[in-house]
Design a protein around this nucleic acid. Structure first.
Lengths: 178, 178
DNA sequence: CTATATCTGGACCGATTGGTCTAAAAATGA
DNA sequence: TCATTTTTAGACCAATCGGTCCAGATATAG
């Protein structure tokens, strides 16, 4: 997964995958069948990990605003410095393949929808608790936050500092809460 | 430019470039020297176009809020439907190459800085005119908007409708103005 | 220890990559 | 019209791509 992560699909050659998996050429093809299939597996795992993390951060056991704070803080962390320069498998894949590869497009689109749903539900809980500023609609605020964090991943490729990104994320969230 | 645009750097092969430029192999190498150099030229033009457009949209001759509205509307247009699926040369390049290619990284980083500066200056003018909501800091609001529009380009790869994106952008801007 | 099943490195394949070079065509100028 | 320069198409190159295949090493079983 890590190889695709930092080099992209086209940028990752078979020797890279062999080195990363410590598998022989034959075993790799026996196990996964295909570079494309292997990539899809990696992408699926990446998506599952991300959604699982969001389920913890934004789940019903946590106070919604707190959850959103740590959710954003996680993105800030992952988009700063070296981690930021490493990038994001999902965003890179979206830009590189989503337009030409149906399998990929479905997964990427599904991920954004799932992410938006989780954020929206946290915002809805916050609204129900009266913690949202006047006029904030959970559905559209969720779309805003999704765009924002994915944009963070993009600009994170040319390393802004962690404190700057954190301040930016805080400023955005402050626009939504009381 | 268009070829790199929709296929990325690694995804674009020499024959694609020959077809697109209507040049022979020899002439292309005589004129540009290198695939990498040609790509940098395309990227520079793309950046220059984008900044020129922003200079018009956000320039001092226009009312700042109006300018921001059309600026956002332009991004909404470009990230919806077929144009959205085509993607953005800059974002795709950032994800694909910024981590490994110093020339690219400098250009991409410079673009984000320049864009942020233009948005921030429009916001500052709006603030001076008393059109911003209380507590909105032009500098951090500009960073938010940059992340947002670049995020739009990412999620735009898996086509949300134009009206949805437009509503989302409006909702965000409404958080900043009085 | 032998027989069998599994796995492994790496030779090998045709296709394609980015890049060079040349012979002929086209354009130019006198 | 002829000589010179420029441009062209495409043959050609080594390297690398994703993918197949097999001989030998290794592990397992009896």
């Amino acid at each position: 997964m890590g190889v695709f992560w930092s080099r992209g699909y086209h940028g990752t050659a078979l020797p890279d995958l062999l080195r990363a998996t410590k598998l022989s050429r034959g075993s790799l093809y026996a196990a996964f069948g295909d570079k494309h299939a292997l990539f899809l597996r990696a992408l699926d795992r990446y998506i599952a990990d991300a959604l699982a993390r969001m389920d913890v951060e934004l789940g019903p056991r946590r106070a919604p605003i707190d959850g959103l704070r740590t959710f954003l803080a996680g993105y800030v962390e992952r988009t700063s410095g070296a981690s930021g320069r490493r990038g994001c498998l999902l965003v890179a894949t979206a830009m590189e393949l989503a337009g030409h590869d149906g399998d990929v497009e479905a997964r990427v689109g599904g991920f954004f929808k799932a992410m938006e749903a989780r954020v929206a539900s946290a915002l809805a809980r916050a609204k129900a608790a009266g913690e949202l500023a006047a006029g904030v609609e959970p559905a559209s605020a969720a779309r805003i936050l999704v765009c924002f964090v994915e944009g963070l991943r993009v600009v994170g490729k040319t390393g802004p500092t962690r404190t700057t990104s954190q301040a930016t994320a805080d400023a955005l969230l402050d626009r939504f809460i009381k």
